[in-house]
Design a protein around this nucleic acid. Structure first.
Length: 585
DNA sequence: GCCGTTTTCGGCCCGACTGTTTTCAGTCG
């Protein structure tokens, strides 16, 4: 519980969402009504994705108007936000052995079984559970057996590896050859990946593959016997699951061709999107599942479709791209015909946040430009670190001026078709000042402002610091605005709504840092921010020529954030970009 | 706990696989 001295430090959305999720788990262990559990868990997801400022919503008494948040949840959220604690939560937490929560992370162990080992054997920790399994006590419990016991032991053994999430980029690299392998089999009529990988979520828990075939056995056999399989965890007639040596789990489902697109839609998810689609189907007199769309009453008639688009059409919706299927506003927009025309990889004509050997990059200016030219880009921006980033060999004023000269010379030489802009990734110092003299910043084509130190400032100080930097007349775009490293480091404390508003007011862009470990600013914030007028620039933050390709991950973030190419600066042609940078520098 | 153009009460998305059973509960997605 927080002390009263910390009372001003209001709990933010993510902290509250985490607590609601925890409450859901507690209730589950208590054997509460599963729909109540779901209500808490769904409220947690809603908060996580909430784009508005929570404090504002509470002040305006708007919390209850959000679908899925009723009187009780609104009260609880408000209490957590204002007080930093919630008696209901504290009491619930105190009444449950913490070791039981941990047991739920063991694959195959759900709330009922955890309750059983606690109730019947009095086990309160994973260590005790391991011991009981080794002594054969667990197998003797009703509903358990020797196989369950062995599975639990193996689950305990590999728990950490199995529960890891993986960066989308890395997971995709593992999934691609598997999908290719499936497509090469002669029994395969169609094959796609599904799940969060297809929705391009920033991290992926497992891989999902879907195959259309009338002859599943050989496909299942290939899948479960391919190289890199550590364990086969399920093998049925239509579904099999494997554990890869990397710890990643992969599921394969094989369905007849006529069900392929229903199944593809179903297994692409998200869960929230599927629930909304099913509810919509029900309201139109249909029942929707991975098997098809059938009239609710009696009839066995399965409607056949030849694409996912046809499924959406049958439900009166425009086609919703997988990236948008997160259960937010996509179905309402698809109904009204107001889905955006999303930016595409081909729209990108160059990128601006890249490093060379001048600071901490691995390739020279010429090597970077050659790589950009190979990608067919019209322009490339070079933005090495500034002098405060000593660890990255940041440039001082004199070295910046020398680099500007080198870039001018390169452009004049016409050695490359790709035009080069001279920029800098300028450190935002602790007080919000920029790291280089204004006269030098003015000599550059553009300035990326970023934070590389002092991550531990409180939210107010950090927000003030970033906004002050945004207000600097030379700032062009804000780099990796929250400093997060996916699966490694949390974002620093910052009020992004205020930063977004300041960026719009000062005509400063916020980049989508496309490095797969960052993907920052998060897609969840873009829809509303762009509606308010915020522009972005998709940047790979490449520290080597072969990493320019990261821009693709940035395009995915933009698409998940509902962005059209009008909101993405680097979809403009060279002439427009030159004009814009000239007019603002 | 949430929700309502048939409902303020009684529903709440739906199916596969496993391991335990001998017809099904628990887990998972």
């Amino acid at each position: 519980m927080r002390s009263i001295f910390e009372k001003l430090d209001l709990m933010d959305k993510r902290e509250i969402a985490a607590i609601l999720d925890e409450i859901g788990v507690f209730l589950e262990l208590k054997g509460e009504n599963p729909f109540k559990v779901r209500a808490y868990q769904s409220a947690a997801r809603i908060l996580d994705r909430l784009e508005d400022d929570l404090g504002e919503l509470i002040k305006a008494k708007q919390l209850r108007s959000i679908k899925g948040i009723g009187a009780a949840l609104a009260d609880n959220i408000e209490t957590l936000h204002q007080e930093g604690s919630l008696p209901f939560y504290e009491e619930l937490k105190a009444s449950i052995e913490p070791g039981l929560i941990e047991m739920l992370t063991i694959p195959g162990l759900g709330p009922k079984k955890v309750k059983a080992v606690y109730g019947k054997l009095g086990l309160t920790s994973i260590d005790q559970l391991r011991l009981a399994c080794e002594e054969g006590k667990v197998a003797a419990l009703p509903g358990f057996g020797k196989q369950s016991q062995a599975k639990i032991l193996s689950g305990i053994e590999h728990r950490e590896l199995y529960n890891q999430r993986h960066l989308w980029w890395n997971a995709f690299a593992i999934a691609e050859p598997i999908l290719e392998g499936l497509r090469k089999l002669k029994q395969t009529e169609k094959a796609e990946h599904a799940g969060s990988l297809r929705r391009c979520l920033e991290t992926v828990g497992d891989l999902d593959f879907l195959v259309a075939s009338e002859d599943p056995d050989p496909i299942m056999h290939w899948f479960t016997h391919q190289e890199g399989v550590a364990e086969v965890t399920a093998l049925g007639q239509t579904k099999s699951s494997i554990r890869l040596e990397s710890g990643l789990q992969a599921d394969l489902r094989v369905v007849p061709l006529k069900q392929f697109y229903f199944a593809l839609h179903h297994f692409t998810g998200s869960k929230d999107h599927n629930v909304m689609m099913r509810q919509r189907a029900l309201s139109m007199g249909y029942s929707l599942s991975e098997w098809g769309l059938t009239p609710e009453e009696g009839g066995r008639k399965v409607t056949t479709i030849k694409s996912e688009a046809a499924l959406f059409k049958k439900l009166g919706l425009n086609y919703i791209p997988p990236e948008l299927r997160e259960g937010t506003a996509e179905i309402a927009a698809a109904e009204k015909g107001t889905l955006p025309e999303l930016v595409q990889e081909e729209d990108i004509r160059g990128v601006f946040h890249n490093h060379t050997t001048a600071s901490d990059g691995r390739h020279t200016l010429e090597e970077m430009v050659a790589a950009a030219q190979d990608l067919g880009w019209e322009y490339l921006g070079i933005s090495d670190h500034s002098k405060s980033s000593v660890q990255a060999n940041g440039l001082n004023e004199e070295r910046v001026l020398r680099q500007i000269e080198a870039i001018e010379k390169l452009n004049q030489s016409k050695q490359f078709k790709t035009y080069v802009f001279s920029g800098i990734e300028c450190d935002i110092l602790k007080d919000g000042d920029l790291d280089l003299d204004q006269s030098v910043l003015e000599a550059l084509d553009y300035v990326v402002i970023s934070i590389h130190s002092g991550f531990t400032q409180d939210e107010e100080a950090m927000t003030r610091r970033i906004i002050k930097a945004i207000e600097h007349p030379c700032s062009t775009m804000l780099g990796h605005p929250t400093g997060r490293l996916l699966l490694e480091r949390e974002p620093y404390a910052v009020n992004m709504q205020k930063v977004i508003d300041a960026a719009i007011a000062n005509k400063v862009m916020i980049e989508i840092n496309a490095n797969p470990r960052r993907l920052d600013m998060d897609w969840r914030l873009w829809h509303k921010a762009a509606e308010k007028g915020l522009m972005t620039c998709i940047n790979p933050d490449a520290h080597a020529a072969e990493r320019l390709i990261y821009y693709k991950a940035g395009v995915q973030v933009a698409r998940k954030g509902w962005l059209t190419k009008e909101s993405v600066f680097n979809t403009n042609n060279l002439k427009s970009v030159k004009n814009y940078l000239l007019s603002t520098s």
